[in-house]
Each structure stands twice: as C-alpha cells, then as structure tokens.
Simulated scan of single mutants.
Amino acid sequence: MSQPSASSELTSQYAAQVSGDLERNVKEQDRIGAEIAELQAQLAALQHDHSVLLNMQQVLGITPAPAEPAAEPAVEPAAEPAASPRTKPRSRKAGTSSRRRTATRASAKKARPAAEPPARPTLVDLVRGHLAEQREPRSTSEIAAALSQEHPDRPVKNTVVRTTVEGLVAKGLAQRTKQGSSVYYTAPDTDRSGDAEPQSGTTE
C-alpha cells in the first residue's frame, strides 16, 4: 500500500510543477508579446517621423550633398632618395610626372559625372510654377493631379503637396484662401477681385 501512495504523491508533485511551469510560460509569452507590440509601435512612429522629415526637407528645398571624390590627387609620390651614380634621374622624373598626370585625369573623370546631369526641379519649384500659371485658386488635390499628369515619371501625393504649399505660404511665396470648408492656394502676385482675403493664420 505504501508504494502506490508514494507513486501517487510523486505524480501529484509533477502535475503541480508542470501546471506552474505552464502558467509561467504563458505569462512570459504575454510579457514578450507586449514588449514586441510596444517596439513595433515605436518603430511605426519613427518611420512616420522619418517620412515627415523627408517631406519637410523636400519642401525646404534641401538636397543632401552626395559624397564627392577629392578634386586633387589623393596619393602623392613619396620623397625619393638621392639618386645613386647608376640611377638615371631623367627617366625617374618622367615616370613621376606621368603618374601625376594619370592620377589627375582619374580624379577629373570621377568628379565630372556629378556635375553633368541637369538639376532636377524640386517639388517646390513645380508647385510655384503651376500656381503662377493659374488664374483661379487651386486646391491641393487639383495641384497634385495636374503635376502627376505633367510629370508621369514623378508621382505626386496630395499630402506632400499640402505640406509644400503650406511651406510656401509660411515663406510668403503663396497665398491661402478659404471658401467655405475648402482651402485653395494661389501665387502671391495673382490679383483677383471678389475672392476671399488670404488667411495666412487659418489652419485647416
């Protein structure tokens, strides 16, 4: 009788231990899942901030300068020892001069392609040019649609256009008018009688 009771007691201990381990495992999964969700939320917020900062950089017309190679030869020949009586100084000078010319040409070839491509107009320039050509106020959706049609290789989003024109309004390079619940934008030198007065301080 003692042996079965001891086996039953041991089984109960194992069952309690397994139940406790299982409960701790579930709690640990919940804790790690919550941490992962929080990290994902932080990552999404950082990605959103990154997108907003890129849009603001484009609105301000800031283009990151590409790393350019040095214009001068990066490697200068080391000082040469005094020529021995058997050395031919003229041939060594000719070789050094040839190496310098080769290095200078290579540097010029590397630096030249960066200046050759024509400067691509920024979205700020495109929006300003579009507003200058219009006689009537235009909404951000109308501006985005027109620019997307004129530049099919350069997709333009409505949110980016809104950020761009608001930046132009802040700089005095565009005017904002409000008609009812809609907001329209015009070039600053557009003269239209009867339209609503520009409301630079009005938020959408």
Results as ranks from 00 to 15, higher is better:
Ser2Trp: 04
Ala6Cys: 08
Gln13Lys: 14
Gln13Pro: 05
Val18Glu: 09
Asn25Ala: 12
Asn25Ile: 15
Asn25Tyr: 14
Asp30Val: 10
Asp30Met: 07
Arg31Gly: 05
Ile32Ser: 13
Gly33Cys: 07
Ala34Met: 09
Leu39Ile: 09
Gln40Ala: 13
Leu43Asn: 08
His48Phe: 09
Val52His: 04
Leu53Pro: 00
Met56Phe: 11
Met56Tyr: 12
Gln57Lys: 10
Gln57Val: 05
Leu60Trp: 08
Thr63Pro: 01
Ala67Thr: 07
Glu68Cys: 15
Ala71Asn: 13
Pro73Ser: 02
Glu76Ser: 13
Glu80Asp: 04
Ala82Ser: 15
Ala82Thr: 05
Lys88Tyr: 13
Arg92Gln: 12
Thr96Met: 13
Thr96Phe: 08
Arg101Met: 07
Ala103Gly: 00
Ala103Tyr: 01
Lys109Phe: 12
Ala114His: 14
Pro117Arg: 03
Pro117Gly: 01
Arg120Leu: 15
Arg120Ala: 14
Leu123Lys: 01
Leu126Ala: 02
Arg128Val: 00
His130Val: 03
Leu131Gln: 04
Ala132Glu: 07
Ala132Ser: 05
Arg135Asp: 08
Glu142Ser: 07
Ile143Gly: 01
Leu147Glu: 00
His151Gln: 07
Asp153Ile: 07
Arg154Pro: 02
Thr159Tyr: 11
Thr164Pro: 03
Val165Tyr: 03
Gly167Lys: 02
Lys171Asn: 07
Gly172Asn: 05
Thr177Glu: 14
Gln179Glu: 15
Gly180His: 02
Ser182Glu: 14
Val183Met: 06
Val183Gln: 02
Tyr184Cys: 06
Tyr184Val: 02
Thr186Arg: 02
Thr186His: 04
Pro188Lys: 00
Asp191Tyr: 12
Gly194Ile: 04
Ala196Ile: 06
Gln199Leu: 09
Gly201Asn: 10
